[in-house]
């Protein structure tokens, strides 16, 4: 813990990441209360259709005259929920697979790792497209699909860490006491891999947010919610790029970029603190 604090204290990137992610998390919580309009409310006047930014609509309106600022604010919550939940699924699945494979070794390890490899060898977005098409375009299914394609990293990391921890003397001592494998994995291995899992989760969150934008842009998003990816999808369908309605797609795009950058900064800083190869204050972006 001390190393982590120190890493964030000394790294401007770490601080920037915390600040960016912090702002978006606050926005996700209070968003619906501060959004100026209902994001679904269509315009009554023809002038309010695809209107450029004005005092009434700081980020303009879409082809139905809906307020884009309100959409982006509402989208923050959906996007972060998708990103964090998918990352949580990914690291839980990955950690269970990795720790099990690493601790038991042998045939089980070989089998689990070949499964992991086969997931790794497939382009994950294609896999996610297949899963969402099969399960249907709901928020839960999108989270599940992204989680199920992003767990491989966590599995690899926790397996490697487990291999090293299970050789430690305190594990041998626990075995001498008569502890079973599940006790040892829970009480001795898991607490020592969790920091790495946590660092990995921040990275997977940014990947999950990107994946969601990707899926939504391809038309596989949940059409009943405004996520940033969905907003960009609608902008694309409307032809916002060709008619020069930059206010339609740019805000959501910038938000995606900022959040992904924020999570990546945090993840790199954690990595620096936890990964002995990266210590000594090298900045890795």
């Amino acid at each position: 813990m001390a190393e982590i604090k120190e890493a964030f204290r000394t790294s401007p990137f770490g601080k920037a990441g915390l600040a960016i992610v912090g702002i978006f998390i606050i926005l996700a919580i209070v968003g619906p209360y501060i959004a100026p309009y209902d994001p679904w409310k269509t315009a009554d006047e023809i002038e309010d259709i695809l209107a450029p930014p004005s005092w009434a609509h700081p980020l303009g309106t879409d082809e139905l005259g809906r307020d884009i600022l309100s959409q982006v604010i509402h989208g923050t919550r959906i996007t972060l929920i998708i990103g964090l939940s998918a990352a949580a699924i990914a690291v839980v699945v990955g950690t269970v697979v990795g720790v099990t494979a690493g601790y038991f070794g042998g045939v089980l390890d070989a089998m689990l790792m070949r499964i992991t490899d086969s997931f790794l060898s497939m382009p994950f977005i294609v896999l996610a497209i297949v899963i969402v098409s099969l399960l249907g375009r709901s928020l839960g299914n999108i989270i599940l699909a992204i989680g199920l394609v992003q767990w491989t990293q966590a599995a690899r990391i926790t397996r490697a860490q487990t291999l090293s921890i299970k050789e430690r003397v305190f594990v041998l001592r626990a075995r001498a006491l008569g502890a079973g494998p599940f006790y040892i994995m829970r009480r001795h291995i898991l607490p020592n891999v969790l920091p790495l899992v946590f660092a990995n989760m921040t990275l997977v969150t940014s990947l999950a947010i990107l994946s969601e934008a990707f899926l939504s842009f391809l038309g596989l998003g949940d059409p009943t919610k405004f996520s940033w990816g969905i907003i960009i999808r609608y902008a694309f369908e409307t032809g916002a790029v060709s008619i020069g309605a930059w206010w339609y797609f740019l805000p959501a795009g910038i938000c995606i970029m900022l959040v992904v950058l924020g999570f990546s900064f945090i993840s790199n800083t954690l990595d620096e603190a936890l990964n002995p190869k990266l210590r000594r204050g090298q900045v890795v972006i």
């Binding site: 430690r168 003397v169 305190f170 041998l172 001592r173 001498a176 006491l177 009480r187 001795h188 607490p191 020592n192």
Partner: peptide, 16 residues
């Protein structure tokens, strides 16, 4: 039957 190991820095789980 119990055992005491050589290195007390290694034989105690640092997280406990």
């Amino acid at each position: 039957a119990q055992i005491v190991f050589q290195d007390p820095y290694e034989s105690l789980n640092p997280k406990m």
